[in-house]
Simulated assay, not measured.
Amino acid sequence: MAGLVLETLHGKTWPDAVERWLSEKSDKASLNSDKCIFRWLEPLLDGYDINDINRSVVDAVTKKKRATGVKNGTVNRTLALLRSVLIRACVDWEWVDAIPKVRLLKEPDRRVRYLTHEEASALLNELPEHLSHMVAFSLATGLRKGNVIGLCWSQVDLVRRVAWIHPDQSKTRKAIVVPLNDDAMRVLTLQHGRHAVRVFTYNGEPVIAATTAAWYKALKRCGIDDFRWHDLRHTWASWHVQQGTPLHVLQELGGWQSAQMVRRYAHFSAGHLAVHAANLPVLMVANARMQVVGPEASV
């Protein structure tokens, strides 16, 4: 961006901050995402002293990112990382005395996107075999795409009907125990013997990507719009709640760190509220008019 890069005169620079951030966050699950954002920011902030990154600079970054046509959520991820680095530079590293306020853009409330059982069946039938098996396993376990793609036989115990995700493979950096239901077991049985190390393969080699052209073509043939691979996890969670799985159990099954993350599925089940909804007086219809029949009516 013209006019955005300044000559560094003193102190620590933005590249210094990026280098230290990457060093201190080397075990962060989303580090690759951070690196992508840093690469995008590089031509905009590469020549800046940390002290010179002020509100006008932040606003220029916001304007530049919005001009790429991405959604507000994508813009916010860039701004949130920029803000996090600046906060650390101020609070932890003590490189600067103050930092500018970084305002995130308003994001619309996104509904939970999930498949009906009919849509899921149609998708499984349209996908090539290896992707169909991976989707079925995702719907049975709720595992994230990367965990399914990278699943190894050393992480599976078919006798005990359990799999596990190691802490360094988990988004929360905590181990996840994955109970294997009948559907998951059927999928794993079909994969057994195909590869010595990895569970899911294609033409004898480990799968390296799931959202391929075949995935998108199958979605199109099924008439399923606005659906990402990660929405398979939303589908798994939604089905669980619809079948009565308590939210605190779902949280543990899905490996979510906070209860807030599973509250988005609460509206799929109101069974635990029904007994309380029945506490109100009964409305009776008489002569086309409504009457309130309270507890005193039975006295």
Rank of each mutant, 00 (worst) to 15 (best):
P43H: 12
D49S: 15
E118W: 03
K145N: 06
G146A: 10
L82P: 04
L79W: 05
C90W: 07
S132G: 15
E107H: 12
R111L: 07
D49M: 10
L139I: 10
R113P: 00
R88E: 00
V70G: 05
K145E: 11
A98C: 02
E126T: 14
A140F: 04
I50N: 00
V58N: 06
G146S: 14
Y114W: 15
A136Y: 01
E126M: 14
C90A: 15
N72M: 01
W93K: 12
T116M: 10
K145A: 06
S56R: 13
T116G: 10
D52T: 10
L81V: 04
V85Q: 07
E94G: 05
W93G: 09
D59Q: 09
N72I: 05
R144E: 06
K65T: 01
S84K: 14
I149V: 15
K71G: 11
L82Q: 04
R110P: 05
L127C: 06
K63P: 00
A89Q: 02
L79S: 00
W93V: 09
L123P: 04
K101V: 13
N51H: 12
L79H: 00
G69D: 07
G142H: 04
A120C: 10
G47Y: 05
T141V: 12
R66P: 01
R103G: 04
W95Q: 02
H117L: 10
D52W: 03
V91Y: 13
L139R: 09
F137T: 04
K101N: 12
A120L: 10
V148I: 14
V58R: 08
L44I: 08
P108G: 09
I87D: 11
E126Y: 13
E126W: 11
T78E: 07
N72T: 06
N76K: 12
N76H: 12
P128L: 11
N51F: 00
R103Y: 10
R111A: 07
R144N: 04
S121L: 14
K106V: 02
R83S: 12
H130V: 08
P128G: 11
L44V: 08
L81Y: 00
V148F: 02
G47M: 06
A122N: 12
V91N: 15
V96H: 01
R66I: 08
R83W: 04
T78R: 09
